[in-house]
């Protein structure tokens, strides 16, 4: 197979997306000022806007996108279903239910995140417990359990939205659509992303074999049970970390891996790191749009991941091979 310059291109795109995120915003900052603040930092407003406001948010967006895209790749291998995305197993539903309940009670950011974490971990535990029976893990049962649980969560979420007073409604809707304006420090998310990429890129030979089906993978010598459990928990925790940063940002986990596959990247040795880079860049750009297009009004980033992603994916799908 010919080596296309995929990674150099993706690295340039990633760096550019972060740079663009630093450049654009309500407060006017020029190209030169961004460079200056990186190489010759002078304390001041510009410095503060770039380093205290824009950079943390850009890093949070990138980590979020990288985690969601990686989780998408992993779950598509695990479930062998092209429609699998990070939210299919009910993780985001559980997190949203927790977060919205907290918002409804008027909780602050910390307590809301805590409630989201409890909800997400609860969903992971329930899905795993219901689909795993002594030594036998049926992936159809896993998929259906996740989908059914998600449906239940979404009913409860609708109920909360209907019951919510007007004052809390907007915050709740932003949370549901995915919004990075309250994203806190993303160190933990970056750490998780790095660990996930390291572990599963080293494991990608097994992922390639597992893509042929569990029985075939075992016949080839893959210890399938442990791998599947690792994929499930790896993807689930990646989703939790992403959801805690930016709410349920949709479409990234589904679209980015497929877009890369459609451009011919299929081997998981390349697909997984490429998805993380592309997903991170994509959410960073979408978030920059979301906070500048209607400035000073900030829009939920989830709207833009879909609005930008849909045409790209439709174009790739309609292209002749």
């Amino acid at each position: 197979m010919s080596r296309s310059p995929l990674f150099p291109v993706l690295l340039v795109v990633a760096a550019s997306s972060l740079f663009i995120a630093l450049l654009f915003g309500t407060f006017p900052i020029s190209f030169v000022q961004v460079f200056d603040s990186i190489f010759f930092p002078i304390p001041g407003v510009v410095q503060d806007v770039i380093w205290r406001l824009r950079l943390p948010r850009a890093l949070a967006a990138f980590a979020c996108g990288g985690l969601l895209a990686s989780a998408g790749v992993l779950l598509q291998v695990l479930l062998r279903n092209p429609l699998a995305d990070p939210y299919i197993l009910g993780v985001s539903g559980g997190a949203a239910l927790g977060a919205l309940a907290a918002l409804l009670l008027g909780a602050g950011l910390v307590f809301t995140n805590l409630a989201a974490l409890v909800g997400a971990l609860g969903a992971i535990a329930i899905v795993f417990a219901l689909s795993f029976r002594a030594g036998d893990w049926n992936l159809h049962r896993l998929l259906l359990t996740g989908v059914v649980l998600s449906a239940g969560f979404s009913a409860l979420i609708s109920l909360l939205l209907v019951l919510a007073p007007q004052a809390q409604l907007k915050g709740m809707l932003f949370w549901l659509m995915g919004d990075l304006s309250h994203a806190g420090a993303s160190d933990a998310a970056w750490l998780l992303l790095a660990a996930l990429l390291l572990v599963f890129t080293l494991w990608s030979g097994s992922l390639n074999a597992l893509a042929l089906g569990a029985l075939k993978a075992r016949a080839l010598g893959v210890a399938v049970g442990g791998l599947q459990a690792a994929i499930y928990f790896g993807a689930a925790f990646a989703t939790v970390a992403a959801v805690l940063l930016g709410g349920s940002i949709g479409f990234v986990g589904l679209m980015v891996p497929h877009a890369l596959r459609l451009t011919g990247v299929n081997d998981h040795r390349r697909l997984l790191p490429a998805s993380a880079l592309a997903g991170g860049s994509f959410v960073t750009l979408a978030d920059t749009f979301a906070r500048t297009v209607w400035a000073p009004q900030q829009l939920p980033v989830g709207v833009f991941t879909a609005l930008l992603g849909v045409p790209v994916l439709l174009f790739l799908l309609s292209r002749k091979p």
Binding site: M1, N208, A209, L212, G213, L220, V222, N266, D267
Partner: peptide
Amino acid sequence: EDQEFWGTLADYVLLGRY
């Protein structure tokens, strides 16, 4: 076995070396 595989024939045969 499942019919779907992402790669070339050579990729497929190489998986035997797993």
